[in-house]
């Protein structure tokens, strides 16, 4: 009896998941398998094929420059994700109150997400330009500075700069997901809490945060992955400079693959990233789930 129920259960489960499974399976399994295969070759994918085994993995894991680029990616992703969540969650909480003009504000606050990455990177690069940029001009005019500041000249400021721009571009997705998540929390819970005399902050802490948990988890994992692998904004703003200070791991992959045609090594770097991010996701889901129970 029970096993019949189980069988039906799993049949329904397969029925619902099958279309997605097929799409993802057919498009991901080949590239992933292919990447793992070529990561053990020295290859330009056409005329050169030489088996090298785990050589690239061993090399990469002891290569100071690669490890440093992982560290930069991690720093970048950490600050961008934290920034996105702080700003996105704050704005979502405010917008969820349905104040007057909320829709107008929502549209304005969505705009960075809607703009193409290339435009966002170029416009900020220009605004920060020491000679032609508006930022220096305004600061000069109001007297905060008296000579042109070169914003991205130091390693720290360049990294901070790309983090700022990435956050500017990235927080709306968190905002929208959290707004959707808040609609998933029964309004009665707030009403009951309000009657019990709970303050807004207490409501936020004890109702909103736990209620958002499932969506928080998925957004957090994927945000981390996206920004860890991020390429465009950094490439267009600093190309990894100054002196390698913003050379994230995807720049290194791109240069290996398309700069040097060393697809094997690029694939090995990608597989390492995949492993790191899988481990991070596991860690996240443990941390966030445990907290729940």
């Amino acid at each position: 009896m029970k096993s019949a129920f189980k069988k039906r259960e799993s049949r329904s489960g397969y029925f619902f998941t099958l279309p997605t499974l097929l799409i993802v399976f057919s498009l991901i399994i080949y590239p992933l398998g292919y990447a793992i295969f070529i990561s053990m070759q020295r290859t330009n994918l056409i005329s050169e094929w030489k088996f090298v085994g785990a050589r690239y993995y061993a090399e990469l894991l002891t290569d100071a420059e690669f490890l440093n680029s992982l560290k930069i990616s991690l720093t970048f992703a950490f600050f961008v994700v934290v920034g996105n969540f702080v700003v996105g969650l704050l704005l979502a909480v405010i917008l969820n109150q349905n104040l007057k003009f909320a829709t107008t504000f929502k549209i304005i606050l969505m705009l960075p997400w809607l703009l193409p990455e290339v435009v966002v990177a170029l416009i900020w690069k220009w605004l920060f330009n020491p000679t032609y940029g508006l930022i220096n001009y305004i600061l000069n005019t109001i007297g905060l500075i008296d000579s042109d500041v070169s914003w991205f000249d130091s390693s720290t400021s360049a990294l901070a700069g790309v983090i700022f721009v990435a956050t500017w571009k990235g927080y709306p997705i968190v905002m929208i997901m959290m707004l959707a998540g808040m609609k998933n929390i029964p309004a009665e819970r707030y009403e009951a809490a309000a009657i019990d005399g709970a303050t807004r902050l207490q409501q936020f802490r004890h109702i909103t945060i736990p209620g958002l948990r499932p969506i928080f988890l998925v957004t957090c994992i994927l945000e981390t992955a996206w920004w860890f692998k991020h390429f465009t904004v950094i490439w267009l703003m600093t190309s990894g400079g100054p002196a390698g200070a913003t050379k994230v791991v995807s720049i290194s992959i791109y240069q290996q693959a398309f700069g040097d045609f060393n697809f094997g090594k690029a694939a090995a770097e990608s597989v390492i990233i995949l492993a790191i991010l899988l481990a991070a996701s596991y860690f996240y889901s443990r941390a966030i789930r445990n907290d729940n129970d």
Binding site: K125, T131, Y132, S150, W151, F152, T238, P242
Partner: peptide
Amino acid sequence: VPPGQFQTGYPEASVQIGKGQ
């Protein structure tokens, strides 16, 4: 050298020449 040389790419430098900066 005009300030901000790390952000002076080809396009910026060309404008500087054109404009006599």
